[in-house]
Nucleic acid binder design. Sequence first.
DNA 1: GGACTGACAGATGTTGAAATCTGTCAGCTG
DNA 2: CAGCTGACAGATTTCAACATCTGTCAGTCC
Lengths: 193, 193
Amino acid sequence: MAEALTAEHILSTTEDVLRRYGPAKATVVDVARALGVSHGSVYRHFPTKAALREAVTERWLDQAHAGLADIAEATTPAPDRLRDWLRALFDSKRRKALGDPELFATFDVLAKENSDVIAEHIADLVGQLAKIVADGVKSKHFKTKDVQRTALAVFSATDRFHNPAHAREWTEPDVEDAFDAVCDLVIRGLAAR
Amino acid sequence: MAEALTAEHILSTTEDVLRRYGPAKATVVDVARALGVSHGSVYRHFPTKAALREAVTERWLDQAHAGLADIAEATTPAPDRLRDWLRALFDSKRRKALGDPELFATFDVLAKENSDVIAEHIADLVGQLAKIVADGVKSKHFKTKDVQRTALAVFSATDRFHNPAHAREWTEPDVEDAFDAVCDLVIRGLAAR
DNA sequence: GGACTGACAGATGTTGAAATCTGTCAGCTG
DNA sequence: CAGCTGACAGATTTCAACATCTGTCAGTCC
């Protein structure tokens, strides 16, 4: 009303609407109603509903994983840093899955649609892994011929602990054990002998 | 008609019906019709539709993975044997996903339902992994404190390449690379130094 | 009397008409 | 004239009547 209608304003309202109705029920009309404008105005800022969902998810992912980049950039020994980073990723994902289920469900929808936002998100995470692996090689903690390929392998091997498709398993009591066991295996697999 | 109605006969007809209609559409009435009996007769041999589906899937899984146990029992060096076994599992799963999609979909349904059949199937596979890991420890190729935990870690780390939830990824060109990279990482992680 | 049928109740699925939604755009409004 | 509205076409979703399915069981038929 008094405020100008900004993309930012639309995004945070959409987040609220998604949280209330979930990705299956939330409509652009709902968002417009919550903003007190016509839905045509929303289309002035976002070309499609999909673009809107993606923008919300992108923001949400950035916020959720803000701390990860710091861990990746730290100067701690690479093996410890890798374990901390994988742990932080797992904890962050699980916290979101349990504490913010509707937005997590939105994220899950995008993941199953091969959205660009998810591809970028994954590329970002694998890039951070590559940084840690490269540091480990430099410090002689790790040994590998192809850093990028190895970073991808680490990401694949820990898929169960960050891919939203597996979220239902994250409440089982054995996951913690499984996570630690996979971490041990992966870190040993990287180690220089 | 001339034949007596046996559980075996019902199972193979159900397999045909599932292949034709898929798990979502196939009904007990369809199976009975294909057998030329009333659906009440089917319930004489299987208590519920779910039990029937599970029995079919169990047979199908046994047949699909018949060769795996032989590999696990072989006397080749444990690292090679592990790689062969993981490769055989991946190939077998992928072949089924592409060549027998409706029964694979049935398997996928059971997997998402936490069915006992799937739990046993997994326990069987992890048992075979444990055999290979234990042999590797005996022959000094591998080193681990807890064989069972390690076998589970190997199974988790390669989840992307056998869990039906990931079947859509198995046709992407990069999977082969990813599979090899994860195998390398896992086998290095097991190796004694 | 053991194997099978078919009618049945309640649950689940299908269908098509009505309601709502997405995305566009000509026109209003300040 | 930049920002917004609201009517619109076509796509999608909802809803309720209807059909089919699951699982049971009294009764039929060798």
